[in-house]
Amino acid sequence: MKRFNVPLIALTMIALSLALVAAGCGSDDDSGSSNSDLSGSIKIDGSSTVAPLSEAAAEKFQAENPNVRVTVGTSGTGGGFEKFCAGETDISDASRPIKDEEIEVCEKNGISYEQLVVANDGLAVVVNPENDFVQCLTLDQLKTIWDKGSKVDNWNQVDSSFPDEKMELYGPGTDSGTFDYFTDAVNGEEGQSRSDYNATEDDNVIVQGVSGSKGGTGYFGLSYVEQNEGKVKAVEVDGGDGCVAPSTETVQNGTYKPLGRELFIYTSGDALQRPEVKSFLDFYINNQAEIAEQALYVPMTEEQAAASTAAVEKLAGGEGATS
């Protein structure tokens, strides 16, 4: 009869895997050969909206400083601050300013920090180029169209001066940051939206849909409008202070509100004491235009960049927001 040595095999496999684990435990943080004097690791976490910027910065920085290891996580703005204020990360990506309760945690743990703007984000509301009756929409009108439970299906329901034109709605799917941002800014709560529109993760589909139907409308990132000049028309948005057309300038100078916003990173005073972190932040700000372009965002103005540089210098000098 054949002998079955199965348990032995199984035990050997287990022992081997344990040995692998044990062997792994021994070595940590070893450094390789270098052709740059900087080394170490930089941990970034936070908003998935800002992550493409930080990833682009990390990639370019690592090309110049191969011994610095930059990692980026995307646990969300809130999740990022939680780790940041616990001292677990060096830099936190944020699509909104830090909240009071998050500041409290940071203060309690003795984490000093500064907020740096790294880019601008803008959303455009677009209509068909042949649509000559919509020049400007107020936030209330946008909410009428897009809010949860909205039954609007004709432009004359939005404003009595608009003609009888059937409305077709196109927008990003619920997974996208664009959807979160738009619903938060327009409908007052992130994720609150009517669901009977043509939802797609592909901005091209929105462009095709809106350009193919006279009453079509939709929204997506501003940089995408510029790439599709002529196919769709971006409308002005009245956020309370009159109609403002979306453009790089109006997003940068903060007048295109609330569909234009700044994107931030936060860095801690402790992390800034490390030369690789300081060097990375300088690199991030100095190459911001290129980084923003790659990540499909609106770059900073010179003033914004100067303010961010000043914030880094201030914190590096030991004067953080808290200490």
Partner: peptide, 16 residues
């Protein structure tokens, strides 16, 4: 993701 899995990391794990 919750326990801190990263999305951008340009090196392989070297140890546990």
């Amino acid at each position: 993701i919750l326990i801190g899995g990263l999305t951008f990391i340009t090196f392989n794990p070297e140890s546990v």
